[in-house]
Nucleic acid binder design. Structure first.
Lengths: 154, 154
DNA sequence: CAGGAAGTCTCGATCAATCGAGATTTCCTG
DNA sequence: CAGGAAATCTCGATTGATCGAGACTTCCTG
């Protein structure tokens, strides 16, 4: 086996390892939040999307509207999100994060993020450049793959 | 902001992105297996550990023994694992994978794995070398971090 | 303003996963 | 072989998340 193939093999292993670790970490985060994975996912969604309605959550997750209501109830009860009605269409209910979410995330991920930065700082620009190129291409591959696996949610 | 800092920032973003994608992918895999995340996790455990007993699963996961029994029932019913008793201590029940798990995993991840390999093949050895170094250091950081977050499971 | 549609919520029922207590089988010690 | 410990399983009850049907409020069209 060539040095190239060896490298490619071990990078593959490392990527799988990182995926596994990400799962464990995510699990730990969900526990720390006192939320199940689905709820945490919707919380992330709320943090990212500007004007997230209950109906939109149902659409994205495939859940029934009643399940979404219950979900928002849970998130609201724990203070992670707030409901507010659209001023111009009062049927709609928007969900926005209160800030607790981001705060808590930063609290949890802060040390990891710092440690990651320190590691990266120990490499030269050439290496970092290569890493960024590779990771961005890999991200594209993953995204395409996931897209092809789940054709329903456009 | 220096070029270094820019690079470090975007690599951080890419790493977070990859983590997110890993989650989505894992979710998709669990669905494809018809298993919940907990069950899938135990299945992975069974695939990795040589002599995995029911009690060991309870220990690792923190579940009660009755929950573990139910879990193994589910996995067994779907053909992913088999129970067999220890020949020298017939109280113990070992759980081993039947091979369906690995087969199905390969089936799902095959295309992604191939695409990943193709991407990596498009880079030169110097770049790959840098990537491997960085990823292996980052993996170490993640592992340490997870260890410090969950001190209970040694 | 009437009628229907859209968006969300309420309610009752269901299902999966879990727990605790106790039963069962097997092992170990004397 | 008796007694207790270990490993797992069974059973009944509980909890959390979900669904479907329908209620409610609001919007839009004519």
């Amino acid at each position: 086996m060539s040095r190239r193939d060896e490298l490619i093999g071990s990078i593959g292993d490392l990527l799988r390892l990182q995926s596994g670790l990400a799962l464990v970490l995510h699990q730990a985060v969900a526990e720390r939040f006192g939320l199940n994975p689905t709820d945490l996912k919707c919380l992330d969604l709320a943090a990212r999307e500007e004007a997230l309605t209950a109906g939109r959550i149902a659409e994205v997750t495939g859940m029934s509207t009643s399940a979404v209501t219950a979900l928002i109830d849970r998130l609201e009860k724990r203070g992670f999100v707030e409901r507010y009605r659209d001023a111009s269409d009062r049927r709609k209910v928007y969900v926005r994060t209160t800030g607790q979410h981001e705060e808590k995330l930063a609290e949890i991920y802060g040390p990891l993020s710092d440690a990651t930065t320190r590691v990266l700082e120990s490499f030269d620009v050439t290496s970092l450049d290569a890493v960024r190129d590779v990771l961005s291409k890999l991200a594209e591959v993953s995204r395409t793959f996931i897209g092809s696996e789940k054709p329903e949610n456009g």
